[in-house]
Computed example of a mutant assay.
Amino acid sequence: MPQTVQGVIARSEGADVEIVDIVVPDPGPGEAIVAVQSCGVCHTDLHYREGGITDDFPFLLGHEAAGRVESVGEGVSEVAPGDFVVLNWRAVCGECRACAKGEPQYCFDTHNAEQKMRIADSGEELTPALGIGAFAEKTLVAAGQCTKVDESADAAAVGLLGCGVMAGYGAAVNTGGVTRGDSVAVIGCGGVGDAAIAGAHLAGATTIIAVDLDPRKLETAKGFGATHTINGGEEDVVERIRELTGGFGADVVIDAVGLPESYEQAFYARDLAGTLVLVGVPTPEKTVTLPMIDIFGRGGALKSSWYGDCLPSRDFPMLVDLYQQGRFDLDAFITERIGLGDVESAFDKMHSGDVLRSVVIL
């Protein structure tokens, strides 16, 4: 029988979010219903509310989530009722050209649930944020979006792997290939940037430079492993990174902002043959212009990081294990634990830079 639960929706562009009753259908083939235990409030949810991703309103917001599988549809073998899972928005297909090449982390045909959840009183179809929609007591997803992890872990902490923390960690380790002895600079010290710093620290980087305009964020970055900080409003970022790396530039520079200005800083702050990783998501109208002779002459690699180039089935359990061992501090990303009715307030705090991550507890 379909279930009626409460969820947080964005009904129209820029409007305050609302808590409404939503109808969750029984899982069909390849689908699962998850009873959500926690969901982080991510900038991506705010982008959905502001119409910055698509205009397929109304949206069921929330995607950085953990919970328990309640039921599964026909043909599901990945998970079973009762499994504690972290949700992901890249359920690999196993058949596309990337999967066929043995690179499923780049899957070009990822899966979402086929059925739609709806607003109970109007019957309107909801568009789930990143195919998840987890600001809700229960949500319907493709079974491949569920990754089973250690059930003794704190849902509020490990749920953050569903987006921001994985994106940042993976930008450093998976995309950037940071390894022991490297020098790393991270431009933008929000949740994604701090996760990149934590990943670089875990991978053995010896010089980790945090760059931001907010002194509060720079101080927080030290707790994740930054060895040096640069206030971009007070210092020349490129020159200061070079000073801190023997005059050469960093081996890996991660742009966690996604603006033309930050990308150009990252480009010139690299050492020769260094790597630039773009993980901050630019808006469609943003463009960058660089002299081709500089692109050629500096060598190295210019990369974009999709979801930290992660493979959830590989990376989530590993990172949860590191968290349980005290080696990867996911708790440090949580600023506050809130209820479903506090999402709009969490967006306001996000704008003002007062939180690293608000986490909805259900």
Rank of each mutant, 00 (worst) to 15 (best):
I119G: 03
A120G: 07
A120M: 11
D121Q: 10
D121T: 13
S122G: 04
S122Y: 07
S122E: 05
S122F: 05
G123I: 08
E125N: 14
E125L: 04
E125I: 00
L126T: 03
L126K: 02
L126D: 09
L126N: 06
P128H: 03
A129R: 00
A129Y: 00
A129Q: 11
A129P: 00
L130D: 02
G131F: 05
G131S: 06
G131I: 05
I132R: 02
G133I: 03
G133C: 06
A134Q: 11
F135R: 10
A136Y: 13
A136D: 13
E137G: 14
E137S: 08
K138Q: 15
K138S: 08
K138Y: 07
K138W: 07
T139I: 08
T139F: 06
T139R: 04
L140Y: 03
L140G: 00
V141A: 10
V141E: 15
A142R: 09
A142V: 05
A143L: 13
A143I: 11
A143N: 10
A143Y: 11
G144R: 00
G144N: 06
G144L: 10
Q145W: 04
Q145T: 04
Q145N: 15
Q145A: 14
Q145G: 12
C146S: 13
C146G: 12
C146H: 11
C146Q: 13
C146I: 11
T147D: 06
K148L: 14
K148R: 15
K148W: 08
K148C: 12
K148I: 15
K148H: 09
V149S: 02
V149G: 04
D150K: 10
D150Y: 02
D150P: 03
E151R: 13
E151C: 02
E151W: 01
A153C: 08
A155P: 04
A156E: 11
A157Y: 11
A157R: 05
V158I: 12
G159R: 12
G159Q: 12
G159L: 13
G159V: 12
G159W: 14
L160T: 05
